[in-house]
Amino acid sequence: MVEKGIWKDWRLHAIVFGLVILTEAIGTHQFSVGPGVILLLPMLYAMVIGLILFFTPVVKNKQSKNAEPLIVLGVTLLIAKIGVIIGPSIEGIIEAGPALLLQEFGNLGTIFLALPVAVFLGMKRESIGMTHSIAREPNVGLIMDKYGFNSPEGRGVMAIYIFGTVFGAIFLGLISGFLATITPLHPLSFAMASGVGSGSMMAAASGSLIAAFPALEQDIIAYAGASNLLSLSTGLYMSIFIGLPLTEKMYNALSKRKESKKNAVKKGA
């Protein structure tokens, strides 16, 4: 997993060090959009500035490559921290077990929300790959395995994977605080929802919640962390047995309806 000598890439570490000092010094800022609040966290600035630096001579291709294993190691530290928060609150987690388990089915929400829109926008079988799950690594593997790399489904899942890689954390970080302040749902429900199965997305989504509801920090981290672990371990099976078959069925129904509507219009004209 880790290539040798990445620790010697002082340039990369110095850039990140500088980014951390700068962004933590700027601190968290928030602004209101209607009744909701959008939170801007240091981690979000750090990601955006890091991305911008990639296009300057400061970051070379070597740094960009070397940065990947550090994400993995950083996430293990983050998970370790979440572990020692879950430990002392284990009773609460077990008590909330039913909610934690059942909310995993909420991940299927993408099919009901995104699939109809994808079909409406004129997408064909791409939409199956796109909307069957949140498209992290295990799901990309599943689709490639089932339909092949050059299939429309494969192209679809890659599109969401790429969007998620580049903007997933930023997007979830922005909407989680906003949705938690604008909807009547409890922040702890959103904490559970933050565990979508990606370390950086979970960090950004739960980070916004912590910034908006600092009194609930420990519970937010414990719920988000536990839910993320569940998503990591059950997510793939959820897709194999429920998500993907359901997406296929709904896609067939939706595209048939679209076809018959089209024909009806033609006949009418």
Binding site: L12, I15, V16, L19, V20, T23, E24, L41, P42, M43, L44, A46, M47, V48, I49, G50, L51, I52, L53, F54, V59, Q63, S64, K65, A67, E68, L70, I71, G74, V75, L77, L78, K81, A169, G199, S200, A203, A204, G207
Partner: peptide, 12 residues
Amino acid sequence: LATPILAYAGIA
């Protein structure tokens, strides 16, 4: 812990 992760991620 999350800030440096996303800084590295931005670069990657």
